[in-house]
């Protein structure tokens, strides 16, 4: 465990807590894409299949449980909570995210490290996580005005991915056999998707203006 990895996990945890805090306190999910949250729940469900079979560390197990519980409860809140669901803008959140699931699964069948159910589900979750943010980014482009919490949520997600890339670089130079192209490439693709959001996020922060994405 290196500092980049720990910082990445803490940033990822913070992004989820910011989102839960937003939804739980102001009872609103305005600007949040349910589709992205559903994809994240599926990512964690297919990645943490080894939760009860391979014990790595208390930290690892605890974080997996937190991510699973939080992602599914966010989906529940947006879909079923009587007040929150009213603020969900389903007319704007129209990204056909099911079109992301199948290609990721087919790709996982073709490009993986081992042709076993667990490995294919794990690889599928990597590819899916790389594209899971797309519905959210499309929604942000549509709704134009981005409220602070949503902006912070996406920013923290991007920061977690960037820190993970630093973690992989660090591990590559410190652990002799640490080479995982699939993890690195899908993680890089995912981080690049945030690049333009980061650009506009910093522009708005520097010029102290409201964050707006170009149409």
């Amino acid at each position: 465990m290196n500092i980049f990895r720990l910082a990445g996990d803490m940033t990822h945890l913070a992004s989820v807590l910011v989102l839960l805090l937003k939804i739980h306190t102001i009872k609103s999910c305005a600007g949040i894409s349910l589709k992205t949250q559903e994809l994240y729940a599926l990512v964690f469900a297919t990645r943490y299949l080894d939760l009860f079979t391979d014990y790595i560390s208390l930290y690892n197990t605890l974080m997996k449980l937190i991510f699973l519980v939080s992602s599914f409860s966010i989906v529940w809140y947006i879909r079923h909570h009587k007040i929150v669901r009213r603020s969900y803008d389903k007319d704007q959140d129209t990204f056909r995210h099911y079109f992301l699931v199948l290609p990721c699964f087919l790709l996982a069948l073709v490009i993986n490290e081992k042709f076993t159910v667990k490995e294919i589900m794990w690889t599928f979750s990597l590819y899916l996580e790389a594209v899971a943010i797309l519905p959210q980014l499309v929604l942000l482009q549509r709704t134009r005005n981005i409220d602070n919490l949503t902006g912070q949520y996406v920013f923290l997600l991007g920061a977690y991915r960037s820190l993970y890339i630093l973690n992989w670089i660090y591990r590559y130079f410190t652990e002799p056999h640490y080479v995982h192209w699939i993890t690195w490439i899908s993680g890089l693709v995912q981080t690049l998707l945030y690049a333009d959001f980061f650009y506009y996020y910093f522009q708005s922060w520097k010029n102290n203006v409201k964050l707006e994405l170009p149409a």
Binding site: D54, I56, W122, H180
Partner: peptide, 10 residues
């Protein structure tokens, strides 16, 4: 702990 295997990441 699985060392070197990226499965130890979240």
């Amino acid at each position: 702990v699985l060392t070197g295997d990226s499965k130890d990441e979240l």
